[in-house]
């Protein structure tokens, strides 16, 4: 079998090889309970990566995702008491609206998404600091359990978060494969000029991609704050780069148009397994980041499908 045919399948092959490799060293790793635990832990990261996939799929980037999630933890903590379940709607709506703003600045004002999303991220950070008074906030435990407890419970041995993740993945997969929006985003990512010359309203679809990214970052923030039962303006720091990496490793290159949300699911798992495996291999805390970086280079070098990249910049 020639290598070109193999390329699109490399992400999940990498995942299986990694899992098998870690499993061989420590059989405890392969126990279903452990694997489920591992998967459950990364759900907020996964949801953020899922959103980022849309921004990257059209050839952009959303650097506001982390600040967005931060802000949402604060918003959720502050307004849970007064709004109850509606706080979820407010959070997702806010994420969608701010994502739309990023999209507007990118497409209508011609500011590269790199800058526009960063700036919107700054706005989110300001809002979070202002709302929280720069303190860590706590949710009322009883109210949290009553309204959002289902998010973090378990069904049998399966963490409920996994159902949320699966639900969102299914929804995103449906959008990507079966809707006008998904098709338009694919066209924009693979050939923006051709999409425009076919009469698609490219601007609107690009704005929507950023809005979806914002909304999903908000969901990630909401889940995170429920998990931690509180919020703070910097609580989700350290999410952004792993989320971007998850998208890239999964096989959605920054040039856009290829890959998709399913790839991101696999990419997130690869990132999670690499991280977890360091524990099993006894890599010291001080060495972990360096090893992570090296493994990352190897993983990206293996997984990206260069035939779809015109020039490597």
């Amino acid at each position: 079998m020639d290598l070109q045919r193999l390329k699109p399948h490399l992400p999940w092959i990498t995942l299986i090889v990694l899992v098998a490799f870690v499993g061989m060293t420590d059989s405890n790793f392969l126990k279903p309970a452990n694997l489920l635990e591992l998967a459950g832990d990364i759900v907020p990261l996964f949801i953020m990566a899922l959103g980022l996939t849309f921004a990257i799929y059209i050839g952009g980037i959303d650097l506001s995702a982390q600040s967005m999630a931060n802000m949402i933890t604060v918003v959720a903590s502050v307004y849970l008491a007064s709004l109850g379940l509606w706080v979820a709607v407010v959070c997702v709506g806010l994420g969608f609206a701010l994502g739309l703003l990023s999209g507007y600045v990118t497409t209508k004002l011609f500011v590269p998404s790199f800058i526009s999303t960063l700036a919107v991220g700054g706005v989110c950070f300001s809002v979070a600091q202002w709302l929280s008074g720069n303190r860590a906030l706590n949710m009322d435990a009883e109210q949290r359990n009553a309204l959002f407890g289902w998010m973090i419970g378990r069904t049998g041995i399966i963490p409920n978060e996994l159902f949320i993740a699966a639900g969102l993945l299914a929804l995103c997969l449906f959008i990507e494969r079966r809707t006008v929006l998904g098709r338009a985003l694919k066209a924009v990512g693979a050939g923006e000029l051709a999409a425009a010359a076919s009469g698609l309203n490219v601007t609107r679809y690009k704005m929507l991609a950023f809005a979806i990214s914002g909304a999903l970052a908000a969901v990630a923030g909401l889940l995170f704050s429920v998990k931690l039962s509180g919020g703070a303006p910097t609580i989700a720091n350290g999410f952004l780069l792993p989320a971007i990496v998850a998208v890239l490793v999964g096989g959605t290159p920054l040039t856009g148009g290829v890959g998709g949300v399913l790839n991101t699911a696999i990419g997130t798992l690869i990132v999670a397994v690499i991280r977890a495996s360091m524990l099993y291999f006894g890599v010291q805390a001080t060495q972990q980041q360096m090893v992570f970086g090296l493994v990352l280079i190897a993983a990206i070098a293996l997984t990206i499908d260069r035939s779809k990249l015109r020039t490597v910049k």
Partner: peptide, 24 residues
């Protein structure tokens, strides 16, 4: 190759690109 067709999308996706409203 740049504006006419979207490389990376298949034949039917390209054909309905300008008229997705009619097929949805």
């Amino acid at each position: 190759k740049i504006e006419g067709i979207v490389a990376g999308m298949n034949v039917f996706e390209n054909m309905t690109l300008s008229q997705m409203g009619r097929y949805s």
